[in-house]
């Protein structure tokens, strides 16, 4: 054992007391675990209860003679305030219920209004669309009317065209007639032209013959000239040999 370790007398006492307490309680438990104790307890309880009843009764009696309130009277007065408090609580709960239902109702109303607003906005946009569509329809109508008017014009033009066509057809007939007429005039002219051409051809063949004779004579003269030139060249060349 060292000098630093100190003696604590209560540590041992604590342990002993713990064991002692447990044993004492166990002993008392066993000692009272019998019918006699139960009967004693019943007798004691009944006697005490009777005594208390009598005491309370006398208290009330004396107090009524003296005309003073007892604790019971105060308790009765207190009960009234408790009842009032309970009623206030009930009212508060009812107010909560009303608040809750109003809140729900408000929320439903808000949701409904929101829905109404969205429907109105939707309707507005739809109206705008319808208005623009109407404007377009008006435009289309005008165009259709214009087209209708145009169609009438076209029909008139068509009628004119048909008339023109008829006129063209008649003109074409005239043209063919004219062509036929023209063709007859040309034939006679061609025949006269052909006659002239025949005469000219005969003249040309005569001229050709004359030209042939002329050519032959020219060719003979040319050959003589060449022979003379060759003789002259040969003559010029011979002295130098000598």
């Amino acid at each position: 054992m060292t000098d630093e370790k100190h003696y604590d007398p209560f540590e041992g006492y604590k342990r002993l007391a713990g064991i002692w307490e447990k044993q004492m309680n166990g002993l008392l438990y066993m000692m009272t675990d019998n019918r006699e104790t139960v009967r004693l307890m019943k007798t004691g309880l009944d006697a005490h209860s009777r005594y208390m009843e009598l005491l309370r009764k006398n208290q009330e009696l004396m107090a009524s003679f003296l005309n003073i309130p007892t604790k019971k009277d105060v308790a009765n007065a207190a009960k009234l305030s408790i009842q009032t408090e309970e009623k206030i609580d009930l009212l508060e709960e009812q107010i909560w219920n009303i608040q809750d239902s109003l809140g729900r109702l408000n929320q439903e109303n808000v949701e409904m209004l929101r829905e109404v607003v969205s429907i109105i906005q939707q309707m507005k946009t739809e109206f705008q669309q319808a208005a623009s569509q109407m404007a377009e329809t008006e435009k289309v109508k005008k165009e259709l009317q214009e087209l209708k008017a145009g169609l009438v014009d076209i029909k008139i033009v068509q009628v004119h065209l048909q008339e023109l066509r008829k006129e063209i057809d008649s003109l074409k007939g005239i043209k063919t007639d004219l062509k036929n007429l023209k063709n007859n005039k040309e034939l006679s002219q061609i025949q006269s032209d052909l006659r002239e051409l025949k005469e000219e051809t005969a003249q040309l063949s005569h001229i050709r013959l004359e030209l042939g004779t002329l050519k032959e004579s020219i060719n003979g003269e040319q050959e003589q000239g060449i022979k003379m030139d060759e003789e002259l060249v040969l003559a010029a060349a011979s002295p130098s040999k000598g």
């Binding site: 675990d33 307890m41 309880l45």
Partner: peptide, 24 residues
């Protein structure tokens, strides 16, 4: 509680009704 007490309580031999009424 001890067994006999429990028997007494459960059989109604020991009853707290009168005691409770007397005290409130």
């Amino acid at each position: 509680v001890p067994d006999k007490w429990l028997e007494g309580l459960q059989s109604g031999e020991v009853d707290f009704n009168r005691f409770s009424d007397a005290y409130g």
